[in-house]
Design a protein around this nucleic acid. Sequence first.
RNA 1: GGGCGCAUAGCUCAGCGGUGCAGAGCACCUGCCUUACAAGCAGGGGGUCGGAGGUUCGAAUCCUCCUGCGCCCACCA
Length: 891
Amino acid sequence: MPETDARRRVQAAAALPPRFDPSTLEARLYAEWRERGYFHPASGDGPEPYTIVIPPPNVTGVLHMGHALNNTLQDVLIRRERMRGRRALYLPGTDHAGIATQNVVERELAEEGLSRQDLGREAFLARVWAWKEKYGDEIYDQLMRLGVSCDWERARFTMDEGLSRAVREVFVRLFDDDLIYRGQYIINWCPRCGTALSDEEAEKEEQAGRLYTVRYPLADGSGHVEVATTRPETILGDTGIAVHPDDERYRALVGSTAILPLIGRELPIVADAFVDREFGTGAVKITPAHDPDDFWVGERHGLPRVNVLNPDATMSEAAGPYAGLDRFAAREVVLDALREAGLLVSVEEIRHAVGRCYRCDTVVEPYLSDQWFVRMKPLAGPALAALEEGKLSITPPRWEKVYAHWLESVRDWCISRQIWWGHRIPVWTCADGHVFAAREDPDRCPECGSESLEQDPDVLDTWFSSWLWPFSTLGWPDETEDLATFYPTNTLVTASEILFFWVARMVMAGYYCMGENPFRDVIINGTVRDAQGRRMSKSLGNGIDPREVIEEHGADALRFTLVASAPTGTDIHLAPEDFRLGRNFANKLWNASRYVLMNLAAGFEAGAPDETALDPPDRWILHRLDETTTAVERALVAFRMNDAAQSIYDFLWHDYCDWYIEWSKPRLDGVRGDDVRNVLLTALERSLRLLHPFMPFVTEELWRQLPPGLRETDSIMIAAWPEPEGWSFPEESASMMLLKEVIGAARALRAQYDVPPSRRAPMTVAAESAVDRATLERFASDVARLASASEALVVDRAPRGDGIVGQVVRGGVEVAVRLADLVDVDRERERLASEIAGVERLLASARAKLGDERFVSRAPAEVVAREREKAADLERSLERLGELRASLEER
RNA sequence: GGGCGCAUAGCUCAGCGGUGCAGAGCACCUGCCUUACAAGCAGGGGGUCGGAGGUUCGAAUCCUCCUGCGCCCACCA
């Protein structure tokens, strides 16, 4: 290459600022990547595809740390696969999040003194769409800042045209297959949201409550029966009393009639095995319209359903004199009336589970209403089989049991919601009462031709579109090239909270619509919590905004810290200052690179290291580089992204920076300077590639500073994922271990005596083994330099005498440093005494083992041999330490 | 009521089915601006690995029980 180029490069490298400043490069690199089309794999023929669909964030607001973790993990996988040459598709998008989004918009309206009813359906929806545009864009912007390599050209929204078509299609198919039905049933009703909730959306919460026992007189005046309830207001809807068929206490009463207090309704007393004889009085009031169990009891015994509540949780006309009261107010009034009538027998404080709306925390009401349901049992079969047949794996595997258990006991899914924001249920009823589902909005009834049609006013549960996500986003129901290329997807990364809501249902839909499971591997990522272990939430104000972290430390710092901080599936506890981990690491890498780049002399031609020209430190670092490559690969294949991150961190910081770079300094000017440079570059270049999926920005920026001859591509994004080169030099590792130990010992001695770094202190090393001695002799000057000893190092029997301190590194190796007047004999005596004590302890335990007949005879020979060596080594150490002490005593 | 997870240094956690494994990061102490990095370097203190048993030549690591947290599922009125 022309020398001018080389010179310019050297100057550029030297001009890298000593502090890594992410703010200057992230937006620039990201835009460039996009322009070059790296995020946009082509469909059709080509290399093997690899697909991840994003768990679409809700358009309710901005992204939090959980999203940052989730998306970083996915991007790590995607970037690695892209580097492996696969067509990696990371498909982004957002979820309309029915109830949640409607709620936030309604809250916004409320501040203006308006309700959705004031606006009307159409205007309200326009308002929600405006909200969606704003926050949808903001979410995309945040993802881009995070650096995730999503294919923005394929971004989808759960309510866009194509996905809406998919929703219709699957609804009609299920409808025609008789897997969707309309039924009157007790559902979870949120009076505040004014809509039904699925069982999953009603979160049970243990709380303090009261169990009231109430006396119901018998119709024939022969006595009374006592029942218990936690919701006295529902007494008004009682239509029967149930006892266990085998319960002797009540046998005589079965078939007779009780009188409902306050109302006077006649209540048949029936026998039903559902009743638990042990609980309460063993007699249960039956309220078919307000309790799921009672509903079925009522069904079995033909009891009427009296709905005493309005949708807003006030008492209905059926509640007679109590009509209009709020449910909780009615409870007190009813209790007062019962008390007055002398019918309230007892009040007991208990703890019991109360359902609450997952969106607004309002106590849900079991409520009788007409809803649409999906029959889940037939869909669950294939989803369960996929797991059993090994076609689906969940990491960590303990979640597989949870997934299976849910599927085994799955209940029908209530999919209608009495809200406006969402996919309108594609069911019409004609004037003659024909009910049908249709893919396209119909003009007339397919059965009778009537043009008087009315569409169901409700919308579908938000998950009814999400469960189609892996294929609807690729074009389904059309047989698109994208669908053919990228489905089934490969890996799904998500939080455990939506394992049922989303993951299990996606598998069901995948089999139902595509005949195939939608992904092979499911990765459960942990929850990001604050330092105290609390969930990060807006109301607690303890959240850390990813945007702030990116602004302060950079996206790479955020990404690396998140990934490195917890094993897959484990919750992460994070304080704002913890992100310094990633920031410091990015800076360390930046500076290591600066060092390497600044030391490339003009005209230097980068090339592969010449193995025959390498010294032990070079071989050692290459050996470690290979080990690290393997470790990273192994960890990623097992989805242990944290381990992968940790391996690179340890290699770069503790091997490459702490040792190899220091070691390279004295050798750069030597005859083998260029070989050292090539090793420095090789290790750096490979490390950048290994680290790129985790820290895309800094690695790309540094990659571009590398000599062109060293990199095959001008962007690291499409560079090849590293594979081990077969650099296995175990003997070099042993040598390096020795040298590191010797240097460490010398440094420790100096530190213990507070020897200023400026002061050179002559040092000698004694080694029994010829191999050790040869190694030490060969690197005497480097060791001396790194240990801040004199220029050269004497390898000999360590001397004794005044002003000398020594340390035994291991049995056959001893380091001595001449500190002259700095040596404090008393201190040294103390130091040696404690060291001797330590070695004696170890030796005693080793000897005890070897003296134990059972150990020697039953432990593997290898283990015994190792123990013998250990004991011998310790004995020698002890001997040398004793000599050291003796030499002190002589003075 | 079932099921699961966690309890290792002051804090957050590794230790992936046993024998030089008692570790990392942060925090702390000491000394250093040693020309890549003070967002750094070198050195150091600190833990009977929750408790009790058991298996084994050997257990933080396997088994049982207990205690304390956390999560999930479940219709007990």
